[in-house]
Design a protein around this nucleic acid. Structure first.
Lengths: 339, 339
DNA sequence: GATGCTGATGTAAACGATTACATCAGGCTC
DNA sequence: GAGCCTGATGTAATCGTTTACATCAGCATC
């Protein structure tokens, strides 16, 4: 593959001049510029980004480590990050942690070795030594969706506390009192936050949170199904199952269907995270929608600031409740919010 | 950030010895090895993959350019590619062409400049000059899902001809005769192949393919919806809408629902591509399922062969029909295949 | 005890770009 | 016309690895 040297030789100039033409980094005579560009075309020269990165100590690449690439929430997030990064002139290398800390660390390691300019991380566990080192080394880092306490790293995330409060209000207006929650892992900030918001909202409405109505899931479909199975097998099963993310909602839906139960007559269902196809389930599923596009965009902007050596502000956006019919009808208070 | 030189100095050896320890490339005394490893740990040394790649002319990275990251088919494919690549020791850089040729080319260019060892491409259009150049230059390349005629590049894909034949047979047994098809772009091999298979299967059952029942979509949800709208507005609308991919099926479903039509009583629906949530729609949607995992795995294996300078065999796997209830019931012939 | 081999290590050249510095011609100012 | 500036270009160092080649000590062989 042709290198600057080949181009320089063919154009009858030095490598410095070639570089100057290609990067506009210094004035060059029109004639020289033309000869260089002709040589570039002739040789189908393609600059070697590896060599450039070695010299400039910048790869124009950022790493994005997501929790689970099969989770539509993360796919949409990846899409948003990608779009913003592209217009900012960055490439994105995506790592799929598959919700496994060791796999997250594998990608942190690989991406740091590849010398990405910065890292967008949706942490899959508590702080690992590797992440702590990266922070200490001053690697430009932004947490996305999830956060890790005790580290000086800006986080871009959504807050669903208010939306969960609205959901519980909606449920109580519909007459539901026995409400169960399938939580995400307590190791993850999103898992903890949503559980805390649920417990607080229940208390706010004077509703008890029974131990057996608090299921511990792991944000994956199988755990949603298993949790739903346990809940529905209780002597006094809940009237509502609220799943802490979309995959667990899918799992719960599987289990409800497998038991031949009707929604919402036999059991109501709500999901944290909204999905396009939730409108097509019978009945359409009430969900809490996160501003995913905006999260992705702002995360990239924040990371770009960090890469530029400037501080980045943490960002918290509000999630919002989307009422559909999976928790019951006749909730006249919210007719307008329905879609 | 520490480099080999720093490690060498601290360990009291030469850089060559450090490299030998780290890569096991030559015998080293136990004591020396220990001192080197101690220095590596002490400095939290992390090899610079950029420099290594420059020297070795290999990045241990492959590029994957998919059609649309919001399409679950491609996400699942990306997941499979990623898994196989990781165990093979490769990193994957994903590019999202968003079904736009110029964006595909953007990624081809970027990834080639980044000197990926090979490229997995789901072509978004006809041959572009850039792709032709890459082939001519001998870049290790494998086409995935879609193919481009006239280039000497192995393709890994699924063939749905038989499954489409089964689907038409299923539909005729249910008494349907007016069957419409929303095709993908004729520029894409998958678009052409599915249309051809549909036309052939119709002919095989003595059914006419009316012009107005052949809608041209673009594999995106909006086109599915628009096509469905046109079909349903016809003086004699079809009894069945068969969408050429999952996103267009989702769009068609939106339109059918918006018109308040019942499935399958008013109009039946089938989809090329299966999705987990198709079982949860009311009624569950009959679909053609592609062996996505296997496609991803085999594509990576093929590409690894190409990178190693060996030829790779083209791969064609069969898609299969999954009968559910969206086209009608009482089709006793297939009771066993239902799920 | 000369020779040759092997194992352990060091020196220095590459890889392909960018860029600090040097050079030189030409034109301007006084 | 001396001095200086500017524009256009070239030379060579540099980034952090890997690796070909060189060196040297120790030991076995005859």
């Amino acid at each position: 593959m042709a290198s600057v040297k080949d181009v320089a030789r063919l154009a009858g100039v030095s490598v410095a001049t070639v570089s100057r033409v290609l990067n506009d980094s210094a004035p060059v005579t029109a004639g020289t510029r033309e000869r260089v560009l002709a040589a570039v075309a002739e040789l189908a020269y393609r600059p070697n980004a590896v060599a450039r990165s070695l010299r400039t100590d910048a790869t124009r690449t950022i790493g994005l480590i997501i929790g689970d690439i099969l989770n539509p929430f993360f796919t949409e997030l990846a899409r948003a990050v990608e779009d913003e990064a592209r217009v900012t002139g960055y490439s994105v290398v995506i790592g799929n942690a598959d919700e496994r800390p060791e796999r997250q660390d594998h990608y942190v390691r690989t991406l740091l070795e590849q010398r990405v300019d910065g890292l967008l991380l949706c942490p899959t566990a508590e702080i690992t030594p590797l992440v702590r080192d990266a922070v200490a080394d001053g690697t430009p880092l932004v947490f996305l969706d999830r956060t890790l306490p005790g580290l000086d790293v800006p986080t871009v995330r959504a807050d669903g506390t208010a939306a969960i409060g609205e959901l519980i209000a909606h449920l109580t207006r519909l007459g539901h009192r026995r409400i169960a929650f399938i939580s995400g892992p307590a190791l993850l900030s999103t898992g903890r936050d949503r559980t805390a918001a649920f417990v607080a909202a229940m208390a706010g409405h004077g509703l008890p949170v029974r131990d057996e109505y608090l299921e511990a899931g792991d944000f994956q479909a199988a755990s949603g199904r298993a949790s739903a199975a346990r809940l529905l097998a209780l002597p006094e099963p809940p009237e509502v199952i609220f799943a802490g993310d979309n995959l667990m909602a899918l799992g719960a839906l599987d289990e409800i269907r497998a038991r031949g139960l009707r929604i919402p007559a036999d059991v109501a269902l709500a999901s944290y995270d909204d999905l396009p196809w939730f409108t097509h389930v019978d009945p359409p599923i009430t969900a809490i929608d996160q501003p995913v596009q905006e999260l992705g965009r702002l995360a990239v902007r924040g990371l770009a600031e960090r890469i530029g050596g400037r501080p980045a502000d943490p960002v918290v956006l509000a999630a919002r409740l989307v009422v559909r019919r999976s928790c019951g009808e006749n909730d006249s208070m919210e007719g307008s919010a329905r879609r």
